[in-house]
Amino acid sequence: MARIGTSGWVYPHWRGVLYHGDQRGWLDRYAAEFDVVELNGSFYRWPTDARFAAWRDRLPDGFEMAVKAPRGLTHARRLLEPEVWIGRVERGLHALAGRRGPLLVQLHPAMERDDARLDYFLSALPAWTRPVVEFRHDSWVDDAVFGILQRHGAAYCVMSGAHLPCVLRATAPLVYVRLHGPDHEHLYRGSYSDDDLAWWAERIREWEDAGHEVQAYFNNDGEGHAVRNARTLKRMLQT
């Protein structure tokens, strides 16, 4: 069964949708309903190893935390000389241990295709990190790029969102989907209709029938849309 979750979990506007009470209990409440989450705060400030270990000890068996790579690596350096960051990333992911999910590498929207840089980065990154690459520039959508990902066992991030290419491509055992909202003009806005979600449920079933593991994350957090959409998609996949 595919794992369905949300991009992040610390949203005050989810009170009444998923949360009640003090924020200290929010992760526990989230993990009681979903078995995977995408850590987005690591993009802005990379957590300490101790923080990763605390999440490991707190999360239940079978739960996975996907981790977003730091912007120092993806946006400031744009994957150049990645060794500066990879050591820190490895330590944090090791601290997550059995709760460790994939490593999401979201590239800068202005970063155009550079096959050599991508190939070098993936060569330097240990395969056990289960890398997922989200390309925000259209120039990366090419069979040669998909071939680089496939050689390294890295997943192409399938995206849904305003002005983003929706390419249904599997380059690794894992298919990783980010649903940034159905609004055609603005990212992270709107709620997916039941028809939209039924369409995605069919795609997920097709990937699973082909032998892939699938993880899908809703990133349209406003008004609790991500929670409601995740619940609906999970229910559709269980029927």
Rank of each mutant, 00 (worst) to 15 (best):
I86F: 04
G87I: 04
G87A: 09
G87S: 11
R88H: 15
V89N: 10
V89T: 11
E90M: 09
E90W: 10
E90P: 09
E90H: 12
R91Y: 10
L93I: 05
H94M: 11
H94S: 09
A95E: 12
A95D: 06
L96M: 02
G98F: 00
G98M: 01
G98N: 01
R99N: 06
R99D: 01
R100I: 02
R100D: 00
G101M: 03
P102I: 04
P102V: 02
L104F: 12
L104V: 04
V105A: 08
V105D: 05
V105R: 09
V105P: 06
V105E: 05
Q106W: 14
L107G: 02
L107N: 03
H108Q: 01
H108M: 08
A110C: 04
M111K: 11
M111W: 12
E112Q: 13
R113C: 12
D114S: 15
D114C: 10
D115A: 15
R117Q: 05
R117L: 11
L118F: 14
D119V: 11
F121D: 00
F121E: 06
L122C: 04
S123D: 03
S123K: 07
S123E: 09
A124C: 13
P126I: 08
P126M: 07
A127Q: 09
A127M: 07
W128P: 05
W128D: 01
R130L: 11
R130I: 11
P131D: 00
V132A: 05
V133I: 04
E134P: 00
E134V: 00
E134I: 01
E134L: 00
F135R: 06
F135Y: 07
F135M: 03
R136V: 02
R136T: 09
H137R: 06
H137F: 07
D138V: 15
S139L: 07
S139I: 09
S139T: 12
S139N: 06
D142R: 12
D142Q: 10
D142G: 04
D142S: 12
D143Y: 13
D143P: 15
A144T: 03
A144S: 05
A144C: 10
V145K: 07
F146H: 09
I148F: 02
L149C: 05
L149N: 05
Q150Y: 07
R151F: 09
R151G: 02
H152S: 07
G153D: 10
G153A: 04
Y156D: 01
C157R: 03
V158L: 05
M159G: 07
M159S: 08
A162Y: 07
H163W: 14
H163K: 15
P165F: 13
L168I: 06
R169M: 04
R169G: 06
T171K: 12
T171S: 15
A172L: 14
A172Q: 10
P173L: 06
P173T: 02
L174G: 05
V175Q: 00
Y176I: 01
